[in-house]
Design a protein around this nucleic acid. Structure first.
Lengths: 237, 237
DNA sequence: CCGAAAAGTAGAACACATTCTATTATTTGT
DNA sequence: ACAAATAATAGAATGTGTTCTACTTTTCGG
């Protein structure tokens, strides 16, 4: 299982071979066509009660993680708090990591809707990117234990981790004023991705107690300024 | 223990409170002068046999990790292969992570001496940085299991992780032609650090099978070009 | 409504990091 | 060289993720 690939293989489509139920922590593969995609079909869910269960599980997990971090989020405890059997929990989330990924997914959803509600106001691409990243930073700082748990686990995750990609996409959108993974050049995409990874790293350093909020801001600004120079707002040119 | 800090406290000097013996997984602080460095004083070791033990342990650990990755590197097995008791192993390395850090330290040492032997030939700062990073990448690729194990563990590590810092320092040296953490500006240091974190991230993606060597190279080049623009070789100006 | 398949449950079982205990070397100060 | 201190050892014990078993409900096609 823990075999690193190194050479890309199949596009890593569906990871879970047999698992029949909902599961599909699969934050998905940037759904081929950005059209619809009823979450019922995608996740292979059957009934509504399964959605309920899944939600209860993720909720319980998040609540526990908000307290003592990943270690407080013990599978037995999560199952108990969610009112499901341990076996069921494992049916929904084949490993603790998958559960963590699901929790993170919700957090990112939150950030994205927050961005939509109140878009970054800065006038330059780097400015907007920094704005978004620092907003995300503050959000995560509110629940240090959870943030710590989530970020680390995500990095460790064997499962498909849309974290970096989603962040990169988000940055692309706000920095490139409407750019998407499709309309951006490969280079721009790479740059957004780089900025995202710098952010993640700084966040980790902060959680380790080796950076203050201000230091992170400074470093993110420095990196963003360099990395996003070519993101001149498309129209004005 | 798993409490993230968020607000910097004491400069996190010595982590191990009481542990009397060797320990000091401390891959050291980029030895001031690249000259000698009797490994006896630095680690606070007592006898020679302890050096032997320590070395045997790290060796056994590395060997095991080269095979099945972190999971093959089980503490019991390491202890056995190294010919020490489990308790002793834990006396030297309070946790598996510490052991991993030690193994990584050796790898980095290897890279550094390789760099010294054959310095990057490129003429631009970004070029030299890319050279070094890709050389490191190739080195790690030779033992994917080990690389995977090491990188992940390092990122997860609660312990002081000189990884990023050492890499940043190394980049600073090769890119800024002789710059050190001391002579560089805070900004340059931050930029080198950013590049290092981008590299680590790309490496992880590769180990996950989501990047090819070529893609990494391309991305590193893109990021390095932007991040190291101000690193103009100091003299020519 | 019936029976098979799928999902859920309770709880035992297993694996591995980490800790603890009792005992036996080794080292060290004098 | 001797006693106290320190290191090492063998191995049991603990904690938590993960797996497995046997059994009960739900769901669903007919």
């Amino acid at each position: 299982m823990r075999t690193p690939h190194v050479t890309i293989e199949a596009p890593v489509a569906s990871r879970l071979p047999g698992p029949p139920p909902p599961s599909a922590a699969g934050p998905a593969k940037t759904k081929g066509a950005p059209g619809v995609q009823s979450e019922s079909a995608s996740t292979g869910v059957r009934t509504r009660s399964q959605h309920q269960r899944r939600k209860r599980i993720v909720q319980a997990a998040a609540a526990l993680a908000s307290r003592g971090g990943v270690e407080a989020m013990q599978m037995r405890t999560v199952a108990e708090r969610a009112g499901v059997a341990l076996g069921t929990l494992y049916r929904y989330f084949p490993s603790k990591m998958d559960l963590v990924v699901a929790v993170v997914g919700e957090e990112i959803d939150l950030l994205e809707s927050s961005i939509e509600r109140r878009p970054p106001g800065a006038t330059t691409p780097p400015g907007r990117a920094v704005d978004v990243l620092m907003r995300a930073t503050r959000g995560l700082m509110r629940e240090p234990e959870l943030a710590d748990a989530l970020i680390r686990s995500l990095i460790m995750a064997e499962v498909d981790t849309p974290f970096g990609d989603r962040m990169a996409g988000l940055l692309l959108r706000v920095a490139g004023d409407g750019l998407t993974a499709e309309t951006a050049t490969e280079e721009q995409f790479a740059l957004a991705g780089s900025l995202a990874s710098v952010w993640v790293h700084e966040l980790l350093e902060m959680l380790r107690g080796r950076r203050t909020y201000e230091q992170i801001q400074r470093r993110i600004e420095i990196a963003a300024t360099r990395l996003l120079v070519d993101f001149q707002p498309p129209p004005s040119a």
